[in-house]
Amino acid sequence: MDLTHYLILSMLLFLTGAAGFIIKKNVISMFLCLELMLNAVNLAFVAFSKHLNQVNGQIIVFLVMVVAAVEAAVGLAIMIVLYRNRGTLSVDDADTMKW
């Protein structure tokens, strides 16, 4: 297994996440897609780290994981408030911030 395989997998995961983020209406689904993209990036980092025999990539992965955890906390809180106020989790209904 050389670097290319990891990178292709990472790219596929990222594209799935990105496509899902644009296509899905449900906030929770979008959130999951976001996590998927983050982890696709993580995979790439780890792969490069192994390939270049450097530890930097793995350190950044931890950083990303922390950010993802924080983001999950804030994101879930927003989702709860959104559902309480609107009774729905569809993002297309939350469109008051516009011209």
């Binding site: 983020f21 644009i22 209406k25 993002v91 297309d92 939350a94 469109d95 008051t96 516009k98 011209w99």
Partner: peptide, 17 residues
Amino acid sequence: LKHVQNGLIRSYAAWIM
């Protein structure tokens, strides 16, 4: 130009992409 600013998160995401 104001129509770009439509309040739909998914469209913003698509533009960013």
